[in-house]
Design a protein around this nucleic acid. Sequence first.
DNA 1: ATGAAAGCGCTAACAA
DNA 2: TTGTTAGCGCTTTCAT
Lengths: 333, 333
Amino acid sequence: MSTGSGTLSEVAATARVSEMTVSRVLRGKTNVSQKTRARVLEAVQSLGYVPNRMAAALASAKSMQLAVIIPSLRNIVFPELLAGITDTLEGAGYQAVIGVSEYSLKREAKLVAAMISWRPAGIIITNAYHHPDVVNLLTASPAPIVEVMELTRNPIDMCVGLNHRKAGAATATRLLKKGYRRFAYLGCDLEADKAAGKRFKGFLETITQGGGELVAKSTVDEPSSVALGRRHFADLLAQSPRIEAVYLSNDAVASGALMYCLAEGIPVPEKIAIASFSGLEIGQAMPLPLTTVRSPRYKMGCLSAQRVLDRLNGKKPPRVTDAGFELIEGATT
Amino acid sequence: MSTGSGTLSEVAATARVSEMTVSRVLRGKTNVSQKTRARVLEAVQSLGYVPNRMAAALASAKSMQLAVIIPSLRNIVFPELLAGITDTLEGAGYQAVIGVSEYSLKREAKLVAAMISWRPAGIIITNAYHHPDVVNLLTASPAPIVEVMELTRNPIDMCVGLNHRKAGAATATRLLKKGYRRFAYLGCDLEADKAAGKRFKGFLETITQGGGELVAKSTVDEPSSVALGRRHFADLLAQSPRIEAVYLSNDAVASGALMYCLAEGIPVPEKIAIASFSGLEIGQAMPLPLTTVRSPRYKMGCLSAQRVLDRLNGKKPPRVTDAGFELIEGATT
DNA sequence: ATGAAAGCGCTAACAA
DNA sequence: TTGTTAGCGCTTTCAT
């Protein structure tokens, strides 16, 4: 391992002080004289010494790493979540170690075990539904844990998210108010994306109660993408020619659907209205901005990291944090 | 830190063997009897023991973490690169620790120091131009290092990438062959995105030599995005009404430009042709697929991780790896 | 096949 | 203000 960057004792020898003094200087303790501090710093410089945090973490039982587990890197919402996390951690000197489960509960379980073996200071994990082993490991872990994205009343430790059922309901209310009554749904990742399921549930409840009707439904068990939305939108329309509005599981698929309409010259929203969920940049940059619900990914990242940091600093943050959402009135409805 | 997951010695006590025997079992050494092994495994199970890799890394001077430094998470090419890295590392039992520099050389320097303090087994860092401190730290580090994305003849250690100048030249050649002569360029991130600069250089050289002409150029020193492309494309067109084809720094901006044309009813490619670089999914899902050059992000991720692993396994991988690129004939030229 | 001793590089706790 | 002692949890090396 030797870094080319020596050890504390080499620095100590060079500065002719004890290791403890070097340790104190490096950790910014104040009880070191100016002279000594200068001498130590000089030695550090001249040796190009970089402290070994593994050793520090082992000795102090305090790691500066946070484990973050997400389902995918290819869906831009997760990198955005990560950005919030890393931005928040950076100021506090912590680092994120990320693991990608690829939407597999088994891989998630392996990852959690691997992460815990590094004794992270905290754990941030997406979604609220996990493998039993994961629940056991996390429950046993002394590290603060945040489940992020969905809101649960019974988090393992803490949770930060939004109410997806309400987000679906809000969209439905909006569409009903606009006069739409005959709806279709196009979803993907059904197995893995429980949150999308909750949105659809809220949507369906609301349109049903409001006198609307679900006249077509198409679900695809593949990761969502623009291309997938574009491909499957046509099939959906074919199912029932009298669809007035389509609710899609997220902006990626919805953007694909809209591109299909643009390419085929189908007038939106006159012939067919489109609404979805995410609030991605791309959806708002389309010739017609999407009607959608913005989920606060970056903010949820910041909040979840902050909850962990708060706990590490001895505070008592709330178990459940509702990050909210925002309905965006686009031109597709 | 105590994990709720005990220590080796607790397991050893439970199984009534020495710590060494437990260590051997856990690391899959073969010189342990079946009986003993079974007893140890049982103890591990019953205690819910998860080994402490920090201690292992310290004792063996072998970390299982790789540092990965990227400029941003919001540009999908970097998550795709990461996906290749994590997929490749996973099988070998290594983990990626990511750092995000936000396109700042200073932040990159801080990050590299922070990373090295964890004594990673290897380092993967994007781009080929770094802060002098970074070069010093990396040069001094005993860990295998890969600079990824761009091709350099003089990597600090190894590099994996593509020749951006040639990618620009290939695009130019194609456009010249199609008969375009009056070109414009729209770029962003000029300071930070050296690779885009190289592509433009190759593009400009080639059109000039081929009888073409650069009649307009617009550069924006902001991170690229679809929205930005859409906003700035109009300005560019206004600069010179006789532009025949526009080369954009990447597919995000180009998609924005194309959306502008779709929204304004400007016929592409008849009135104006569009070409760029990346090969993003979104560009190919547009009503008109973009003419672009696909950079092999995922593959470069795999390759760079593999180079590091090879070195860790005592092999002598090549210093320079050309991952190549692929010209995509879209409908926008 | 198994164990004992020593130590990785650092920090906590206690002394001086 | 500075130093000493002990040990974090594991692996290496050398015995047996």
